[in-house]
Design a protein around this nucleic acid. Sequence first.
DNA 1: GAACTATTCAATAAGTTTCTTGAATAGATA
DNA 2: TATCTATTCAAGAAACTTATTGAATAGTTC
Lengths: 220, 220
Amino acid sequence: MDKRQFKDRVYTILSGLVKAMANPHRLEIIDLLGQGERSVEEIAAETGMSIANASQHLQVLKQSNLVQIKRNGNFILYRLANDNVYKSWKDLREIGMESLEEVKKIVKDFREKKSSFEPMRMDDLLSRMESSNIILLDVRPEQEFKAGHIPKAINIPIDQLPGRIGELKRSKRYVAYCRGPFCVFADDAVQFLTEKGFKANRLEEGYPDWKIKFQAETVR
Amino acid sequence: MDKRQFKDRVYTILSGLVKAMANPHRLEIIDLLGQGERSVEEIAAETGMSIANASQHLQVLKQSNLVQIKRNGNFILYRLANDNVYKSWKDLREIGMESLEEVKKIVKDFREKKSSFEPMRMDDLLSRMESSNIILLDVRPEQEFKAGHIPKAINIPIDQLPGRIGELKRSKRYVAYCRGPFCVFADDAVQFLTEKGFKANRLEEGYPDWKIKFQAETVR
DNA sequence: GAACTATTCAATAAGTTTCTTGAATAGATA
DNA sequence: TATCTATTCAAGAAACTTATTGAATAGTTC
């Protein structure tokens, strides 16, 4: 095998991997599976796709070794094959968030309606949490919180927030996080809390970002 | 704009970015541009493509904001738009190197003909260089070495190596590196040095990987 | 073992990507 | 201003990708 053949083969295989990610639905699936395993039905419901279409896209991801399956009763559960998959998605997402004006604008416009405060970055949060009166609020569904969360966070799922507002204190600043930058639970929480007179920001990143940043070694 | 519209738009734009990377030639171009800027002609020559085809692929990368251009005399020079682009490619590459058996096998088979020693990882290298008698050997063309290299490395371009073998000492161990894991200059160097009775390994990673790992702050 | 149910498969039509060829362009040099 | 040269554009054929539909499957539960 000569140099050119070697390169052609390697780059062709790797481009196959990239092609498997190169679809809006499949990116959304990868982002969702960053939360933990899901059945085809759940994936279809959360992403607004038909079941047959979700299944087809999941086959593409499976054939490229980006996801793996496990049977549980009547359901087949899909999960990301390893942490590198989410890490790659995160990097691609960050190119978009940092250098595509179009993405920046859409995200900014969408959030502007929900909050006048800037989102907080994870690096800032961790340094501020020590000394200040910040409370970290995980607004994902209970099951996801139980599967893993940022230390010291309290869990009030977004749909329970109106009923549990009494648990919160006006003297604190609340920083809400959820699944990632494109998850809107945190934006909804910030909007609701701000309207009720609380101090609230969203965290730019979500739980999976914290996990790959700080738990990489322990997870392996 | 509702939640679903917001997500559809963001994921569609980001998938456009991923699609722009989802081609073997374009991945090779990104990898090459990790070394520094290049003209269309140089890119075509180094990757074995026709000029028209290289140009067409460069247009795709440019339209997705992955590369930028600069005119220099008669030539148009292409370069990566920012460090995140190489970082994303690196992560995708690493999924392949770590979890695609097919990639692992091709790389292993190709290297086996060149060397019986395992490649050294960057993390190992840096800890060993202090105390041991390792010499780091950059076998890229002189111009690339001058544009940036790993500290303490000496530069002997692969095509000058046979003529300059007298500069090397048999008491040392030589660790050769070049552009990245799929660059074969280092493999050729290791093969040559081993045949001449020197102790030599290749470094798994290349210069751009060192750069984004250790120079990220200074470059920004 | 029968019935059930989540998931996959197969076929199709519309849209997209790729490479090749040869012509066109824009900018630099003389 | 004319010439030169690197790069881009345009057109077309072949090969992929995608969503939809309805049928098939495989594994579980009763």
